[in-house]
Design a binder for these strands. Sequence first.
DNA 1: TAACTTTATGACAGCGCTGGTCATTTTGTA
DNA 2: TACAAAATGACCAGCGCTGTCATAAAGTTA
Lengths: 341, 341
Amino acid sequence: MKVTIHDVAAKAGVSIKTVSRVMNNEPSVKQATIDKVNQAMQELHYQPSAAARNLASTKSYSIGYIYDNPNAYYVIDMQRGLLDACRRHGYELLIHPTNAKSPGIVQEVIDLVQHSRLAGLVLTPPFSEMPEIAEALSSINVDFVRIISGSTPSPKQTNCVLVDDFTAAFKITNHLLELGHSQIAFLCGDDEHSSSGERLAGFKAALTKRGINANPKFIVPGSYSFESGVKGATQLLALPNKPTAIFACNDEIAAGALFSARLQHIEIPQQLSIVGFENSPFSRQTWPPLTTAHQPNSTIAQSAAELLFKHTRPGSQSQTEDQPVFIPELLVRESTAVVNS
Amino acid sequence: MKVTIHDVAAKAGVSIKTVSRVMNNEPSVKQATIDKVNQAMQELHYQPSAAARNLASTKSYSIGYIYDNPNAYYVIDMQRGLLDACRRHGYELLIHPTNAKSPGIVQEVIDLVQHSRLAGLVLTPPFSEMPEIAEALSSINVDFVRIISGSTPSPKQTNCVLVDDFTAAFKITNHLLELGHSQIAFLCGDDEHSSSGERLAGFKAALTKRGINANPKFIVPGSYSFESGVKGATQLLALPNKPTAIFACNDEIAAGALFSARLQHIEIPQQLSIVGFENSPFSRQTWPPLTTAHQPNSTIAQSAAELLFKHTRPGSQSQTEDQPVFIPELLVRESTAVVNS
DNA sequence: TAACTTTATGACAGCGCTGGTCATTTTGTA
DNA sequence: TACAAAATGACCAGCGCTGTCATAAAGTTA
């Protein structure tokens, strides 16, 4: 019925303490024993009780995920990845949607951590980019992993999982360049999100490499929303020399741009190519479906959780503090075509 | 530092057993004692250890939300509502995304409940409509609340929160009728989801009331997906006598229908009106934005959680088993217009 | 092969609380 | 004043796990 550590121990023919050792990958366990125990755990579908571990141990077995992201698909994917990692390690996940801009946010986070005795926290934008949160967490000695935009592991930014928006944007831009476009506009996301800056930098780098210098009028500030895409594209398409392609900082913006183009009876992709970023379901449900960059959010989340567990677990000391890097991949669909000059 | 039940007992000058009695509001405790203990708890900022209680007690202090819904916005809204209710009552929320069609799903749910010692479960479609889940849960004596499609509280279906898809669909159809449409087609969602049936029934009822009998060719089976919408609409628009309006069972289907119409250069809403259902963000990000029905998911979720707590708490016995009913509201946007005959 | 050092494993006591069983004290009532 | 009823405490087991320390198995040396 309910399988406990005793069942596993019995099945593996060892003591419960040894099972515990394996779970916590403590040293001094023979490989053969580890295998035996692992197999028993698998066969019995054993799941350690977080409650019991929390009670018995000084350390805690739950981690938190704080978020304030309007993109539900992103959040759901993150949750799934975190949950998977947690299940594997017998941790619990505490989700905490909140408002990042609330004045008492730092205290709120501290209270949450202390009250729920969290082992650590996973932070995504905007929280991962708020220095005050990182400071507060450090000051109360709580582990956390940040998922941030960046291309190169830096020794200063430890405990991070990087999403290489720069390189992905570079590749997307190259795709456009290869289709013959040179008049490419860029619709920015929110300034506060560094992902927007990274993507813009990748965009510019690709242009520069081809000897094209970006037309300043083609770089439109905005935010990560459909509305912003509509507005930005409308502005661009009113220009005397229109761009032949638009790089939108995410799929929602791209969908907005698409919308705006439609309003003006501009055919996509014949008269205008549009690319998005993220591969959110939106990108598949526009007409035409968007060329975009796929971000493996669930995998990224898992990786973040694993990193957190590694911190928390003194047993498996990581030699070098590694910072996984994920590069979103170009996904060509029907919103881009050879330039029509 | 950490204050336990012993500290409270000492401060209040009673035994730990009495403190425990107060916390669990067991009978046979004098009011004066209750007050003394409560005061001690307050002064010490005592917070009972959820871990210890969960471990020691047969009852539990967390509820679960099992879901398998491709619609991330729906899930996020539900989570938020549940979380709010949990916070108010000092419960924890355990989220469990899974695959409803997996063969071992019933066992999985049972394992989850037993392993995590859940006080109860909130079920949304498709789980809320799976009799085997309800039976399994009843058999192991676990409380649960189902969010289901239905218009009238039935004494048989207890512990339910109802979403009145019938009435909402009736209203939407009326909107179309008022615009002069009589040739209205219906794109169904999944057969298994009763919401699809309810919406279809509401649709038919509205037609019947106007003395129109639904053309059987205009009722197209399908599923809750973009692809299904594309397919269904394509089929409809190939008919010799095309419909002048399409009622899609949800926004995704509607988006697919929109897509299909676009492919055939049919102008929306001039040549064809399309309505969706749900008011998901999709519906705002199509061109044109969809007329749809808004479902207050977060509020519905809160209501479900409250109902669950009421069950769980023997203290506040509800006189009549109430079944809250929510009616999604018509939201007119630009995908519908007066019929062009 | 004895003597000794490592390594691997097990026995056992708790973590903070609940739930049960009785014994005891404090009330209320006739 | 006597007695039943209500309120409280004392005590124990145990939830499922971890931490500590003792012990057994394996490896090493002379």
